[in-house]
Simulated assay, not measured.
Amino acid sequence: MFKVSNETKVGVLAAVSIAMLILGFNLLKGKSLFSKSKKIYAVYTQVNGLQPSNTVQVNGLVVGSVSNLEIMDKNAGRILVELRINKKVDIPQNSVARIASDLLGTKTVQIDFGNANAYLEDGDTIYAAVDGSITDALKEQLSPLAKKLEVTLGSVDSVLLTINSIFDPGTKGNLREAIAHLNTTMGNFTRTSASLNSMLDPQHGNVKATFDNLESLTANLKNNNERINAILGNAEKTTAALANGQLDKTLLEMQQMVARLNETIAKLNSTDGSIGMMLNDKKVYNNLQNSLNSLNKLLEDLRVNPKRYVHFSLFGKKAKVQPIPSDTAKAL
């Protein structure tokens, strides 16, 4: 049996390890040793952190990878990127290789197909473009906001300066006094609200008593509804009677009565009639007064000396005449 020496085994293992190492390194760089591919190139002024082995995609499909990046001048103003296309795709000559990045910052080369009928061959150069990064987009969005914020802060600064100039010590004192009055007003308002709460107390408040009285009043009105209807009926009959013409007749009779009363008063004030002469002539009044006095004396004498006017005696003795009390009183 053929015997392999240890040295041979070590050599073979070393060769296999070296081959595997080269194969893995190329795979990590996006190169394939067993598949047929073509190379195309793109020139960028900046690559935004693009690295070898980053994928090359067409409509989201991975068709290759970035195999190498080289600086074309000492200032690194132009960078040559080698793209290895592994898939059998036809890329129009007016297509664009655009460097893009996702939210995690992973760089990719997106190929946007053009509409040309001629296609890129191995070793051709494709148009290059670079998308702005998320930081650039945020800067573009935040730049107007920063300017507006700067203007706003300037306005706030001006307002604060104006307020400081307005609020001198006297104004601050007036403001403190106004706040003190406001506190007093709020205290009064609190007491007023407490009074309102006590008035609105559903058990013992004045509002409850008022509603109770109102309820009693409405109950009384309900109980006396028939009487109220009768009163309203009578009032309706009265107004109907007045509307039928009796009011005008009554007013006419009252006017006639007033006219007669005025005529009677006029006659009393004049000296044409007997009553007018009695009221207005002083002599008539004096004569009447004298007659009344004489009549009073006659009645008094009749009461004191009745036998003077009615004489009746069984023995014929004449009664003694008594003086009238009024005459006695005048003599005294």
Score class of each variant (00 low, 15 high):
residue 219 A to W: 05
residue 82 E to V: 01
residue 111 I to T: 02
residue 295 L to M: 14
residue 122 D to C: 02
residue 287 N to Q: 04
residue 252 L to P: 03
residue 77 G to S: 02
residue 47 V to F: 01
residue 163 I to H: 07
residue 294 S to M: 15
residue 11 G to Q: 05
residue 109 V to L: 01
residue 195 S to D: 06
residue 285 Y to P: 01
residue 160 L to M: 08
residue 91 I to T: 11
residue 80 L to C: 07
residue 327 D to W: 05
residue 124 D to Q: 01
residue 82 E to W: 02
residue 93 Q to W: 01
residue 7 E to W: 04
residue 38 K to H: 03
residue 96 V to N: 00
residue 194 A to S: 14
residue 57 Q to H: 12
residue 30 G to V: 02
residue 223 N to E: 12
residue 249 K to I: 15
residue 186 M to G: 10
residue 197 N to I: 15
residue 331 A to T: 12
residue 277 M to R: 14
residue 299 L to H: 05
residue 221 L to P: 07
residue 61 L to Y: 12
residue 278 M to Q: 11
residue 311 H to W: 14
residue 64 G to W: 02
residue 239 T to M: 13
residue 283 K to C: 11
residue 56 V to D: 03
residue 203 Q to H: 13
residue 119 Y to M: 14
residue 86 N to I: 04
residue 102 D to P: 03
residue 156 V to R: 00
residue 7 E to K: 11
residue 101 S to M: 11
residue 268 L to F: 12
residue 251 L to Y: 05
residue 10 V to Q: 10
residue 1 M to K: 06
residue 267 K to S: 07
residue 190 T to N: 09
residue 166 I to S: 11
residue 105 G to R: 10
residue 164 N to T: 13
residue 108 T to Q: 02
residue 310 V to K: 12
residue 33 L to G: 15
residue 147 K to E: 08
residue 57 Q to T: 06
residue 165 S to I: 00
residue 238 T to K: 13
residue 105 G to Y: 05
residue 40 I to A: 00
residue 247 L to T: 12
residue 54 N to D: 12
residue 223 N to L: 09
residue 104 L to H: 14
residue 41 Y to K: 00
residue 22 I to W: 13
residue 248 D to W: 02
residue 45 T to S: 14
residue 22 I to H: 08
residue 295 L to C: 05
residue 131 D to K: 05
residue 103 L to W: 06
residue 169 P to L: 09
residue 178 A to F: 15
residue 55 T to W: 02
residue 135 T to Y: 00
residue 116 A to D: 04
residue 293 N to E: 09
residue 126 I to H: 00
residue 180 A to R: 14
residue 82 E to K: 01
